[in-house]
Amino acid sequence: MQVKTVLLIEGCVNLLIALCKLSVGFMTNSTAIIADGVHSFTDVTNNIVAWMAVTISETPADRGHPYGHQKFEQLAIFVLATLLVVVAFEISLSAFQRIGEPVEHSFLGLIILIAALIINTILTLWERHWAKRLNSDILVADATHTLSDVLTSIAVIVGWQLASRGYYWIDAVFAIIISSIIFYLAFKLFQSAIPILVDSSEVDAHKMTDAIMNIDAVKEVRRVRSRSSGKYRIADVVVTVDPNMSTADSHQVADSIEHLLATKFHIEDAVVHIEPFEK
């Protein structure tokens, strides 16, 4: 199984669920159900965006992108989070505009929504399994969207059933609860993508410096920086050694530092610059 295959299956299921939810929403005139259906449609859009991002991220490094295209996945996660914010805002606005409107009960609609809830729960667990197995951030983000469908569907069903019994305002309240959940999930996605996109430090610089200074030949650590590509950790280090050290020995020091960073800090791509020590 590949990441793009998982996304393709996810997209097809989300499309079917979205159509079912919208049909029930319009049939019962429920704001919350319509909102949930729109949310499921955005999941289809998310699947498409994620699929395109994965395709681009798998492209080998080229002249324009010498470090590769891995960050396109994080960019896609940022886009997905932004889309969630827009959807959450629209749901809240719609809830306020339609508050107090009557909601109809439908036994068939209830069966459809419960079936969609079960399918979404299975889909979430299945995608999280493959996200862990394939070590894919984009699948984790997409599974978060599917989880939001599970949570909102539960809120929708409860709110709809209460609203259909005459408590019309509850339907709008639950629509607002849905939007709040979506806002929170968007925040979590922003929280995971933005640090990588802006090259936030990935490893504590003091810990790296202390570890490097334990290498006998290193006189001074002048600079330590680390970041994440979205797939692996990257670091660049500047150290000083005895100015009389041979090139071969300096190269050995650099190899020792790279090995240390890989084994202790899980840094897969390290650039070590050696300079002569000056008192």
Rank of each mutant, 00 (worst) to 15 (best):
residue 11 G to K: 09
residue 180 S to N: 13
residue 41 F to H: 06
residue 14 N to W: 07
residue 96 F to H: 15
residue 274 I to Q: 07
residue 176 I to R: 02
residue 262 A to I: 00
residue 165 R to G: 14
residue 149 D to C: 01
residue 141 A to L: 07
residue 130 W to A: 01
residue 66 P to E: 05
residue 166 G to F: 01
residue 63 R to T: 14
residue 227 R to M: 05
residue 166 G to R: 04
residue 100 G to I: 13
residue 126 W to K: 04
residue 144 T to H: 06
residue 205 A to T: 14
residue 16 L to H: 14
residue 117 L to P: 05
residue 153 S to Q: 10
residue 235 A to S: 05
residue 5 T to Y: 00
residue 121 T to H: 02
residue 22 L to P: 00
residue 45 T to N: 15
residue 25 G to Y: 01
residue 115 A to V: 05
residue 273 H to G: 09
residue 124 T to D: 00
residue 275 E to K: 15
residue 154 I to W: 00
residue 264 K to C: 05
residue 13 V to L: 13
residue 248 A to E: 12
residue 29 N to C: 11
residue 90 E to T: 14
residue 28 T to I: 11
residue 125 L to V: 03
residue 111 I to D: 06
residue 255 D to N: 08
residue 69 H to S: 08
residue 78 F to E: 11
residue 93 L to K: 15
residue 197 L to Q: 09
residue 52 M to N: 04
residue 219 K to A: 13
residue 180 S to H: 07
residue 158 V to I: 08
residue 160 W to I: 00
residue 77 I to C: 11
residue 133 R to K: 11
residue 74 Q to P: 10
residue 221 V to M: 01
residue 150 V to Y: 02
residue 204 D to M: 11
residue 127 E to K: 03
residue 216 D to S: 08
residue 91 I to D: 06
residue 268 E to A: 15
residue 274 I to M: 07
residue 162 L to D: 02
residue 216 D to G: 04
residue 172 A to Y: 10
residue 39 H to T: 08
residue 81 A to T: 06
residue 115 A to D: 08
residue 179 S to E: 02
residue 65 H to C: 09
residue 154 I to S: 06
residue 230 G to Y: 02
residue 117 L to R: 07
residue 72 F to R: 07
residue 278 E to V: 12
residue 208 M to Y: 02
residue 79 V to P: 03
residue 50 A to Q: 02
residue 109 G to M: 11
residue 104 E to K: 12
residue 205 A to R: 15
residue 224 V to G: 08
residue 169 W to G: 13
residue 212 I to Y: 07
residue 264 K to Q: 14
residue 110 L to I: 04
residue 3 V to N: 09
residue 42 T to K: 05
residue 202 E to F: 06
residue 173 V to F: 14
residue 75 L to V: 09
residue 252 Q to E: 14
residue 71 K to N: 11
residue 236 D to L: 04
residue 23 S to N: 00
residue 151 L to I: 10
residue 150 V to G: 00
residue 273 H to K: 15
residue 1 M to C: 01
residue 275 E to W: 09
residue 28 T to F: 09
residue 64 G to C: 12
residue 170 I to S: 09
residue 117 L to K: 04
residue 54 V to E: 01
residue 233 R to M: 05
residue 87 V to H: 08
residue 129 H to W: 05
residue 216 D to K: 12
residue 266 H to C: 04
residue 183 F to C: 13
residue 176 I to Q: 07
residue 134 L to F: 01
residue 51 W to P: 10
residue 226 S to G: 00
residue 88 A to N: 10
residue 228 S to R: 09
residue 34 I to E: 06
residue 249 D to E: 12
residue 124 T to E: 00
residue 182 I to V: 12
residue 24 V to F: 01
residue 187 F to C: 09
residue 128 R to K: 08
residue 234 I to Y: 10
residue 160 W to P: 08
residue 245 M to R: 09
residue 243 P to D: 08
residue 53 A to R: 06
residue 69 H to E: 04
residue 210 D to Q: 10
residue 108 L to W: 06
residue 159 G to Y: 13
residue 58 E to L: 05
residue 177 I to R: 03
residue 93 L to P: 11
residue 111 I to Q: 06
residue 184 Y to H: 06
residue 10 E to R: 03
residue 18 A to D: 01
residue 242 D to W: 13
residue 201 S to K: 15
residue 218 V to C: 00
residue 11 G to A: 11
residue 78 F to G: 09
residue 169 W to H: 15
residue 114 I to R: 01
residue 202 E to A: 15
residue 271 V to D: 10
residue 274 I to D: 14
